[in-house]
Design a protein around this nucleic acid. Structure first.
Length: 258
DNA sequence: ATGTCCGATGCTCTATGATT
DNA sequence: AATCATAGAGCATCGGACAT
Protein backbone atom coordinates (compact mmCIF):
# COMPACT_ATOMS: atom_id res chain seq x y z
CA UNK A 1 0.00 0.00 0.00
CA UNK A 2 2.02 3.02 1.18
CA UNK A 3 5.17 1.08 0.34
CA UNK A 4 4.23 1.44 -3.33
CA UNK A 5 4.44 5.23 -3.09
CA UNK A 6 7.54 7.11 -4.23
CA UNK A 7 6.19 10.57 -4.99
CA UNK A 8 6.58 11.64 -1.35
CA UNK A 9 10.30 11.89 -2.02
CA UNK A 10 11.62 15.27 -3.15
CA UNK A 11 12.60 15.04 -6.78
CA UNK A 12 10.14 12.25 -7.63
CA UNK A 13 6.96 13.45 -9.30
CA UNK A 14 4.00 11.23 -10.10
CA UNK A 15 5.28 10.71 -13.64
CA UNK A 16 8.71 9.67 -12.36
CA UNK A 17 6.96 7.29 -9.97
CA UNK A 18 5.03 5.77 -12.87
CA UNK A 19 8.29 5.21 -14.75
CA UNK A 20 9.57 3.25 -11.76
CA UNK A 21 6.38 1.17 -11.63
CA UNK A 22 6.54 0.52 -15.36
CA UNK A 23 10.17 -0.51 -14.94
CA UNK A 24 9.19 -3.18 -12.43
CA UNK A 25 10.05 -1.19 -9.30
CA UNK A 26 6.78 -1.42 -7.43
CA UNK A 27 7.71 -1.26 -3.76
CA UNK A 28 10.37 0.42 -1.65
CA UNK A 29 12.13 -2.93 -1.24
CA UNK A 30 12.11 -3.44 -5.00
CA UNK A 31 14.03 -0.20 -5.30
CA UNK A 32 16.44 -0.93 -2.47
CA UNK A 33 17.27 -4.41 -3.78
CA UNK A 34 17.52 -3.30 -7.37
CA UNK A 35 20.93 -2.69 -8.93
CA UNK A 36 19.85 -0.83 -12.02
CA UNK A 37 19.98 2.91 -11.51
CA UNK A 38 17.03 5.01 -12.66
CA UNK A 39 18.60 8.29 -11.58
CA UNK A 40 22.01 9.90 -11.22
CA UNK A 41 24.30 8.48 -8.52
CA UNK A 42 23.70 11.40 -6.21
CA UNK A 43 19.92 11.31 -6.66
CA UNK A 44 19.87 7.53 -6.30
CA UNK A 45 21.75 7.72 -2.99
CA UNK A 46 19.33 10.37 -1.76
CA UNK A 47 16.32 8.24 -2.72
CA UNK A 48 17.72 5.14 -0.99
CA UNK A 49 18.21 7.14 2.18
CA UNK A 50 14.68 8.55 1.95
CA UNK A 51 13.24 5.05 1.48
CA UNK A 52 15.04 3.80 4.59
CA UNK A 53 13.61 6.73 6.54
CA UNK A 54 10.18 6.03 5.04
CA UNK A 55 10.29 2.45 6.34
CA UNK A 56 11.04 3.69 9.84
CA UNK A 57 8.28 6.31 9.58
CA UNK A 58 5.75 3.70 8.47
CA UNK A 59 6.79 1.37 11.28
CA UNK A 60 6.27 4.26 13.71
CA UNK A 61 2.88 5.14 12.15
CA UNK A 62 4.09 8.67 11.54
CA UNK A 63 1.21 10.36 9.76
CA UNK A 64 3.10 13.64 9.87
CA UNK A 65 5.98 12.19 7.86
CA UNK A 66 3.77 11.24 4.93
CA UNK A 67 1.41 14.22 5.12
CA UNK A 68 4.24 16.71 5.07
CA UNK A 69 5.83 15.05 2.04
CA UNK A 70 2.78 14.27 -0.09
CA UNK A 71 0.98 16.97 -2.03
CA UNK A 72 -2.62 17.68 -0.97
CA UNK A 73 -4.21 15.57 -3.66
CA UNK A 74 -1.87 12.63 -3.03
CA UNK A 75 -2.46 12.45 0.73
CA UNK A 76 -5.36 10.07 0.00
CA UNK A 77 -2.66 7.44 -0.37
CA UNK A 78 -2.40 7.09 3.41
CA UNK A 79 -6.00 5.83 3.58
CA UNK A 80 -5.46 2.05 3.71
CA UNK A 81 -2.69 2.27 6.29
CA UNK A 82 -4.18 4.95 8.52
CA UNK A 83 -7.92 4.45 8.12
CA UNK A 84 -8.31 3.43 11.76
CA UNK A 85 -7.19 6.97 12.69
CA UNK A 86 -9.47 8.68 10.19
CA UNK A 87 -12.85 10.26 10.68
CA UNK A 88 -15.27 11.53 8.05
CA UNK A 89 -17.02 14.75 8.97
CA UNK A 90 -19.88 16.89 7.72
CA UNK A 91 -21.76 19.78 9.32
CA UNK A 92 -25.10 21.38 8.69
CA UNK A 93 -25.64 25.08 9.34
CA UNK A 94 -28.33 27.74 9.26
CA UNK A 95 -26.77 29.16 6.08
CA UNK A 96 -23.56 29.92 4.23
CA UNK A 97 -22.28 32.97 6.05
CA UNK A 98 -19.59 32.28 8.60
CA UNK A 99 -20.36 35.69 10.14
CA UNK A 100 -24.10 35.33 10.59
CA UNK A 101 -24.83 31.60 10.58
CA UNK A 102 -24.30 28.83 13.10
CA UNK A 103 -23.80 25.07 13.16
CA UNK A 104 -27.00 23.06 13.59
CA UNK A 105 -25.80 19.44 13.45
CA UNK A 106 -22.52 17.58 13.02
CA UNK A 107 -22.04 14.00 11.84
CA UNK A 108 -18.83 12.01 12.16
CA UNK A 109 -18.17 8.49 10.90
CA UNK A 110 -15.12 6.40 11.68
CA UNK A 111 -15.74 3.63 9.16
CA UNK A 112 -17.83 1.65 11.65
CA UNK A 113 -20.29 3.89 13.44
CA UNK A 114 -21.85 7.30 12.91
CA UNK A 115 -22.14 9.84 15.70
CA UNK A 116 -24.47 12.82 15.51
CA UNK A 117 -24.26 16.06 17.46
CA UNK A 118 -27.11 18.52 17.75
CA UNK A 119 -26.88 22.19 18.65
CA UNK A 120 -28.63 22.75 21.97
CA UNK A 121 -28.34 19.09 22.94
CA UNK A 122 -25.05 17.21 22.81
CA UNK A 123 -22.94 19.34 20.49
CA UNK A 124 -20.17 19.96 23.00
CA UNK A 125 -19.47 16.22 23.21
CA UNK A 126 -18.02 16.61 19.72
CA UNK A 127 -14.83 18.17 21.09
CA UNK A 128 -14.02 15.19 23.30
CA UNK A 129 -14.86 12.66 20.59
CA UNK A 130 -12.98 14.25 17.70
CA UNK A 131 -9.67 14.23 19.56
CA UNK A 132 -9.67 10.41 19.37
CA UNK A 133 -8.80 10.72 15.69
CA UNK A 134 -5.80 12.02 13.76
CA UNK A 135 -7.08 12.59 10.23
CA UNK A 136 -10.20 14.51 9.29
CA UNK A 137 -11.83 13.81 5.92
CA UNK A 138 -14.30 16.34 4.50
CA UNK A 139 -15.75 17.64 1.26
CA UNK A 140 -14.85 21.31 0.88
CA UNK A 141 -14.05 21.40 4.60
CA UNK A 142 -11.12 23.73 4.03
CA UNK A 143 -13.47 26.53 3.14
CA UNK A 144 -16.66 25.53 4.90
CA UNK A 145 -16.73 22.98 7.73
CA UNK A 146 -13.42 23.78 9.38
CA UNK A 147 -13.86 27.57 9.54
CA UNK A 148 -17.37 27.03 11.00
CA UNK A 149 -16.08 24.57 13.60
CA UNK A 150 -13.23 26.89 14.50
CA UNK A 151 -15.60 29.77 15.05
CA UNK A 152 -18.26 27.75 16.87
CA UNK A 153 -16.00 25.98 19.33
CA UNK A 154 -13.32 28.65 19.45
CA UNK A 155 -10.49 26.18 18.96
CA UNK A 156 -8.22 24.88 16.25
CA UNK A 157 -8.86 21.22 15.48
CA UNK A 158 -5.41 19.77 15.70
CA UNK A 159 -5.96 17.13 13.01
CA UNK A 160 -4.50 16.33 9.63
CA UNK A 161 -7.05 17.06 6.95
CA UNK A 162 -7.96 15.57 3.61
CA UNK A 163 -10.34 17.71 1.57
CA UNK A 164 -11.88 15.39 -1.02
CA UNK A 165 -13.13 18.36 -3.02
CA UNK A 166 -9.57 19.24 -4.04
CA UNK A 167 -8.70 15.59 -4.55
CA UNK A 168 -11.60 15.16 -6.98
CA UNK A 169 -10.77 18.41 -8.80
CA UNK A 170 -7.31 17.04 -9.38
CA UNK A 171 -8.81 13.84 -10.79
CA UNK A 172 -10.99 15.88 -13.14
CA UNK A 173 -14.27 15.68 -11.20
CA UNK A 174 -16.06 19.00 -10.75
CA UNK A 175 -19.56 20.03 -9.79
CA UNK A 176 -20.12 19.59 -6.05
CA UNK A 177 -20.57 16.55 -3.83
CA UNK A 178 -23.83 15.16 -5.25
CA UNK A 179 -22.76 15.69 -8.85
CA UNK A 180 -19.39 14.00 -8.25
CA UNK A 181 -21.11 11.08 -6.52
CA UNK A 182 -23.29 10.65 -9.58
CA UNK A 183 -20.29 10.76 -11.89
CA UNK A 184 -18.47 8.21 -9.72
CA UNK A 185 -21.48 5.88 -9.67
CA UNK A 186 -22.07 6.18 -5.93
CA UNK A 187 -25.55 5.29 -4.64
CA UNK A 188 -27.10 7.10 -1.67
CA UNK A 189 -29.42 5.52 0.88
CA UNK A 190 -31.19 8.88 1.33
CA UNK A 191 -32.07 10.86 -1.78
CA UNK A 192 -33.81 14.14 -2.44
CA UNK A 193 -32.53 16.50 0.24
CA UNK A 194 -30.09 19.32 -0.40
CA UNK A 195 -28.35 21.99 1.65
CA UNK A 196 -31.16 24.52 1.28
CA UNK A 197 -33.71 22.01 2.57
CA UNK A 198 -31.38 21.15 5.43
CA UNK A 199 -31.65 24.77 6.57
CA UNK A 200 -35.46 24.56 6.41
CA UNK A 201 -35.57 21.29 8.34
CA UNK A 202 -33.65 22.91 11.18
CA UNK A 203 -36.06 25.87 11.28
CA UNK A 204 -39.09 23.52 11.39
CA UNK A 205 -37.50 21.77 14.32
CA UNK A 206 -36.62 24.99 16.12
CA UNK A 207 -39.74 27.02 15.37
CA UNK A 208 -42.55 24.49 15.49
CA UNK A 209 -40.89 21.72 17.48
CA UNK A 210 -41.03 19.36 14.53
CA UNK A 211 -38.96 16.40 15.73
CA UNK A 212 -39.41 14.48 12.50
CA UNK A 213 -37.70 17.37 10.69
CA UNK A 214 -34.72 17.04 13.02
CA UNK A 215 -34.67 13.31 12.41
CA UNK A 216 -34.60 13.89 8.66
CA UNK A 217 -31.83 16.45 8.99
CA UNK A 218 -29.71 13.99 10.97
CA UNK A 219 -30.27 11.29 8.35
CA UNK A 220 -29.23 13.67 5.59
CA UNK A 221 -26.17 14.72 7.56
CA UNK A 222 -25.31 11.04 8.18
CA UNK A 223 -25.69 10.17 4.51
CA UNK A 224 -23.12 12.79 3.61
CA UNK A 225 -20.43 11.29 5.87
CA UNK A 226 -21.12 7.81 4.50
CA UNK A 227 -20.65 9.19 1.00
CA UNK A 228 -17.23 10.53 1.96
CA UNK A 229 -16.02 6.98 2.58
CA UNK A 230 -17.27 5.92 -0.86
CA UNK A 231 -15.46 8.87 -2.40
CA UNK A 232 -12.12 8.36 -0.69
CA UNK A 233 -12.07 4.74 -1.86
CA UNK A 234 -12.93 5.69 -5.44
CA UNK A 235 -10.29 8.44 -5.34
CA UNK A 236 -7.67 6.09 -3.91
CA UNK A 237 -8.29 3.54 -6.63
CA UNK A 238 -8.04 6.20 -9.33
CA UNK A 239 -4.83 7.66 -7.92
CA UNK A 240 -3.22 4.21 -7.72
CA UNK A 241 -4.65 2.89 -10.99
CA UNK A 242 -1.24 2.81 -12.71
CA UNK A 243 0.38 0.87 -9.89
CA UNK A 244 0.65 -2.74 -11.06
CA UNK A 245 -0.29 -4.36 -7.75
CA UNK A 246 -2.18 -2.17 -5.32
CA UNK A 247 -5.30 -1.05 -7.13
CA UNK A 248 -8.89 -1.59 -6.16
CA UNK A 249 -9.52 -1.51 -2.48
CA UNK A 250 -13.22 -1.95 -1.82
CA UNK A 251 -15.85 -0.63 0.51
CA UNK A 252 -16.77 -2.66 3.56
CA UNK A 253 -20.40 -2.77 4.64
CA UNK A 254 -21.71 0.58 5.85
CA UNK A 255 -24.25 1.15 8.61
CA UNK A 256 -27.83 1.25 7.37
CA UNK A 257 -29.69 4.53 7.74
CA UNK A 258 -33.14 3.15 6.99
C1' DA B 1 34.05 21.58 -22.36
C1' DT B 2 29.82 22.90 -24.46
C1' DG B 3 25.08 22.79 -25.94
C1' DT B 4 20.55 21.06 -25.72
C1' DC B 5 16.72 18.89 -24.01
C1' DC B 6 13.76 17.31 -20.32
C1' DG B 7 11.77 16.94 -15.82
C1' DA B 8 11.04 18.92 -11.42
C1' DT B 9 10.45 22.79 -8.59
C1' DG B 10 9.15 27.30 -7.05
C1' DC B 11 7.62 31.58 -7.40
C1' DT B 12 3.44 35.31 -8.51
C1' DC B 13 -1.03 36.35 -9.90
C1' DT B 14 -5.90 35.73 -10.86
C1' DA B 15 -10.40 33.49 -11.52
C1' DT B 16 -13.47 30.50 -9.58
C1' DG B 17 -16.12 26.76 -7.43
C1' DA B 18 -18.04 24.90 -3.35
C1' DT B 19 -20.55 24.68 1.07
C1' DT B 20 -25.71 25.51 3.77
C1' DA C 1 -26.66 34.84 -1.26
C1' DA C 2 -20.99 35.22 1.49
C1' DT C 3 -16.72 33.82 1.38
C1' DC C 4 -11.82 32.76 0.29
C1' DA C 5 -8.33 28.81 -0.32
C1' DT C 6 -6.73 26.83 -4.12
C1' DA C 7 -5.75 25.32 -8.86
C1' DG C 8 -3.82 26.71 -12.87
C1' DA C 9 -1.30 29.57 -15.88
C1' DG C 10 2.87 31.78 -16.96
C1' DC C 11 7.53 32.17 -16.22
C1' DA C 12 12.21 31.39 -14.38
C1' DT C 13 15.55 28.26 -12.67
C1' DC C 14 18.15 24.26 -11.70
C1' DG C 15 20.21 19.74 -12.32
C1' DG C 16 20.84 15.51 -14.87
C1' DA C 17 21.47 12.97 -19.12
C1' DC C 18 23.40 12.69 -23.28
C1' DA C 19 25.57 13.97 -27.68
C1' DT C 20 29.14 16.32 -29.89
Amino acid sequence: MLTYTFCHIKGISCTAEKRLWDGGIISWDDYLKNNKRFFSYKKDQFIRKQLEISKIALEADSIDFFFSRLSNEQQVRVYPHFKNKMVFLDIETTGLSIKDDSITTIAIYNGHTIKNYINGQNIWNFIGDITKYSILVTYNGTKFDIPFLKKFFGINLNLFHIDLCHVLHNLGYWGGLKECERKLGIQRQIEGIDGVQAVQLWSYYKNINDNSALKQLILYNSQDVLSLEHIIIKAYNKIMKDCPVSNNISLTKQPSLL
